[in-house]
């Protein structure tokens, strides 16, 4: 083997080790029995339920807000596109915990929109809605970025052909553009779910860590770690398995050329 190739192989091997070692350690720390026991514990089930519910509730909102923006960005000329992308990068570079603070200041009782929301009888912080909004805030920008790249893969002449066949722009979007990237979109939906499930810092600040109300699995791990590390490891394995499952589904669904 030539030296440079050898160098590439060794560095890749080290990276592989770096990824696989902690994952194996976590999975080895719990035996299947323990995992089953904890997975059927009512408190854990509650956290699991909140985790899945918040992620699934956020999904339609992510699509509704994200898809049109992604399409707009994909259709924009370079300059405007650059501006819009920078706007999306703002929440992406924000540390999650800072995002939580920002959301509190926006939607909290004393927040910018808090007064208005209070008049409407809405108190967002420390509710399931807060968990959903936190996910929406953090996950949507990533979703939009990836979907814009997905829309970029559509041959423009297909959409023009649809228009010339008498389809309105909206019909073209619904009946042509979306179906053309449906596999990619499904994969993005699952990625968004996975991202929402793993969210921690933003939720703990904005929604709190209230068991049965806002405590997701990630937050439950944090609480458990302080009391009983062994339980935290088991919970961690559970969360990891869920993520692995989602990743596997993505790999099966996503067309190779559309993975970004």
């Amino acid at each position: 083997m030539r030296p440079f190739t050898l160098f590439l192989v060794i560095t890749s091997f080290l990276l592989g080790l770096l990824i696989l070692l902690p994952i194996s350690a976590l999975l080895l720390a719990t035996n299947p029995l323990e995992l089953f026991a904890i997975a059927t514990n009512p408190e854990v089930l509650q956290a699991l339920w909140i985790t899945l519910a918040s992620s699934f509730l956020a999904l339609p909102a992510i699509f509704l807000l994200g898809l049109p923006s992604a399409y707009l960005i994909s259709r924009c000329r370079s300059r405007l596109r650059h501006g819009l992308e920078t706007l999306l990068e703002l929440p992406m570079v924000m540390p999650p915990i800072v995002a939580g603070l920002a959301l509190l200041l926006a939607f909290g009782r004393q927040g910018l929109a808090g007064g208005l929301l209070a008049e409407l009888g809405l108190r967002i912080p420390f509710t399931l809605l807060a968990v959903v909004i936190a996910i929406l805030f953090v996950v949507t920008p990533y979703f939009v970025r990836r979907c814009a790249l997905l829309f970029d893969t559509i041959d423009r002449s297909l959409e023009e052909a649809a228009l010339l066949l008498g389809a309105s722009e909206f019909q073209t979007f619904i009946h042509l553009s979306l179906p053309l990237v449906r596999r990619g979109l499904t994969a993005e939906a699952i990625m968004a779910l996975a991202q929402g499930i793993g969210l921690f810092g933003t939720i703990i600040l904005f929604a709190g860590n209230l068991p049965g109300r806002t405590q997701t699995l990630s937050l439950a791990i944090y609480s458990a770690f302080e009391a009983d590390p062994q339980e935290a490891f088991a919970l961690g394995s559970l969360l990891l398995l869920i993520s692995l499952l989602l990743l596997t589904i993505v790999k099966f669904i996503a067309p190779k050329e559309q993975r970004i």
Binding site: L158, E160, L164, A167, L180
Partner: peptide
């Protein structure tokens, strides 16, 4: 008039058949 209201048929060089 937007393309969809012009009643013009166009066959693109790429043909632009819908693959799905």
């Amino acid at each position: 008039l937007p393309p969809e209201q012009r009643r013009i048929g166009m066959v693109f060089q790429s043909l632009a058949l819908f693959p799905h």
